[in-house]
Design a protein around this nucleic acid. Structure first.
Length: 106
DNA sequence: AACATGACAGGTC
DNA sequence: CGACCTGCCATGT
Protein backbone atom coordinates (compact mmCIF):
# COMPACT_ATOMS: atom_id res chain seq x y z
CA UNK A 1 0.00 0.00 0.00
CA UNK A 2 1.37 3.30 -1.00
CA UNK A 3 -0.21 5.82 1.26
CA UNK A 4 2.23 8.58 0.56
CA UNK A 5 -0.37 11.29 0.72
CA UNK A 6 1.39 13.16 3.47
CA UNK A 7 4.98 14.12 2.91
CA UNK A 8 7.69 11.99 4.47
CA UNK A 9 8.95 15.11 6.14
CA UNK A 10 5.89 15.37 8.35
CA UNK A 11 5.80 11.65 8.91
CA UNK A 12 9.34 11.67 10.23
CA UNK A 13 8.55 14.58 12.47
CA UNK A 14 5.53 12.83 13.90
CA UNK A 15 7.58 9.73 14.58
CA UNK A 16 10.13 11.78 16.42
CA UNK A 17 7.49 13.48 18.49
CA UNK A 18 6.06 10.11 19.37
CA UNK A 19 9.24 9.03 21.07
CA UNK A 20 9.41 11.91 23.51
CA UNK A 21 9.46 10.29 26.96
CA UNK A 22 6.43 10.90 29.11
CA UNK A 23 6.85 13.63 31.65
CA UNK A 24 9.42 15.43 29.54
CA UNK A 25 9.14 18.19 26.98
CA UNK A 26 11.34 19.28 24.12
CA UNK A 27 11.52 22.03 21.54
CA UNK A 28 10.48 22.33 17.95
CA UNK A 29 14.12 22.79 17.08
CA UNK A 30 15.12 19.57 18.79
CA UNK A 31 12.41 17.62 17.04
CA UNK A 32 13.51 19.07 13.74
CA UNK A 33 17.12 18.22 14.44
CA UNK A 34 16.36 14.69 15.60
CA UNK A 35 14.19 14.22 12.54
CA UNK A 36 17.10 15.10 10.33
CA UNK A 37 16.21 18.73 9.66
CA UNK A 38 18.44 21.04 11.65
CA UNK A 39 17.16 24.60 11.85
CA UNK A 40 13.76 23.83 10.49
CA UNK A 41 11.68 24.30 13.57
CA UNK A 42 8.91 25.90 11.57
CA UNK A 43 8.30 22.64 9.81
CA UNK A 44 7.69 20.95 13.14
CA UNK A 45 5.11 23.52 14.03
CA UNK A 46 3.49 23.17 10.69
CA UNK A 47 3.60 19.38 10.87
CA UNK A 48 1.87 19.38 14.23
CA UNK A 49 -0.72 21.76 12.91
CA UNK A 50 -1.42 19.14 10.27
CA UNK A 51 -1.61 16.24 12.69
CA UNK A 52 -3.11 13.10 11.14
CA UNK A 53 -6.37 11.95 12.72
CA UNK A 54 -6.56 8.61 14.46
CA UNK A 55 -2.92 8.64 15.52
CA UNK A 56 -1.88 9.18 19.09
CA UNK A 57 0.88 11.75 19.07
CA UNK A 58 2.06 13.58 22.21
CA UNK A 59 2.00 16.97 20.57
CA UNK A 60 1.69 18.59 23.97
CA UNK A 61 5.27 17.64 24.82
CA UNK A 62 6.56 20.05 22.23
CA UNK A 63 7.17 23.62 23.32
CA UNK A 64 9.24 26.51 22.01
CA UNK A 65 12.88 27.27 22.79
CA UNK A 66 11.89 29.59 25.60
CA UNK A 67 10.32 26.72 27.45
CA UNK A 68 6.90 28.23 26.87
CA UNK A 69 3.77 26.84 25.30
CA UNK A 70 3.51 28.20 21.79
CA UNK A 71 -0.03 29.43 22.17
CA UNK A 72 -1.46 32.67 23.41
CA UNK A 73 -2.02 32.33 27.17
CA UNK A 74 -5.67 31.71 27.94
CA UNK A 75 -6.16 30.23 24.51
CA UNK A 76 -8.10 26.99 24.43
CA UNK A 77 -5.21 25.03 23.00
CA UNK A 78 -2.92 26.58 25.56
CA UNK A 79 -5.07 25.34 28.41
CA UNK A 80 -5.37 21.92 26.85
CA UNK A 81 -1.63 21.52 26.48
CA UNK A 82 -0.96 22.85 29.95
CA UNK A 83 -3.46 20.41 31.44
CA UNK A 84 -1.99 17.46 29.57
CA UNK A 85 1.51 18.34 30.69
CA UNK A 86 0.64 18.84 34.33
CA UNK A 87 -1.19 15.57 34.14
CA UNK A 88 2.15 13.93 33.29
CA UNK A 89 3.90 15.58 36.17
CA UNK A 90 5.33 18.53 34.32
CA UNK A 91 5.46 21.61 36.47
CA UNK A 92 4.70 24.96 34.89
CA UNK A 93 5.52 28.13 36.78
CA UNK A 94 4.36 31.42 35.35
CA UNK A 95 3.98 29.80 31.97
CA UNK A 96 7.49 28.39 31.94
CA UNK A 97 8.36 24.70 31.94
CA UNK A 98 10.81 23.71 34.66
CA UNK A 99 14.32 23.12 33.23
CA UNK A 100 14.49 19.61 34.68
CA UNK A 101 11.53 18.52 32.63
CA UNK A 102 12.94 20.27 29.63
CA UNK A 103 15.04 18.53 26.99
CA UNK A 104 17.14 20.73 24.79
CA UNK A 105 19.60 23.46 25.39
CA UNK A 106 20.26 25.43 28.49
C1' DA B 1 5.64 29.91 -11.03
C1' DA B 2 5.27 33.86 -7.49
C1' DC B 3 3.69 35.34 -3.03
C1' DA B 4 2.03 35.01 1.61
C1' DT B 5 1.68 32.33 5.82
C1' DG B 6 2.96 29.58 9.81
C1' DA B 7 2.07 25.46 16.89
C1' DC B 8 9.87 28.45 15.38
C1' DA B 9 14.98 29.66 16.38
C1' DG B 10 18.72 32.75 17.00
C1' DG B 11 20.71 37.11 16.99
C1' DT B 12 20.66 42.22 17.60
C1' DC B 13 19.22 46.49 19.81
C1' DC C 1 12.11 41.40 29.04
C1' DG C 2 10.28 43.10 24.53
C1' DA C 3 10.30 44.51 19.49
C1' DC C 4 12.42 43.46 15.07
C1' DC C 5 14.82 41.02 11.53
C1' DT C 6 16.67 36.94 9.05
C1' DG C 7 17.01 32.09 7.90
C1' DC C 8 14.54 27.77 6.49
C1' DC C 9 10.76 24.82 4.25
C1' DA C 10 6.30 22.98 3.10
C1' DT C 11 1.59 24.48 1.78
C1' DG C 12 -2.26 26.83 -0.25
C1' DT C 13 -4.10 30.30 -3.32
Amino acid sequence: MKMKKTSDTYFRIWQTVKRIPKGKVTTYGEIAKRSGFPKQARLVGYALHHLPPGVNIPWHRVVNAQRRISFPPGNENYNRQKALLEREGVIIVKGKILPEKFIGKK
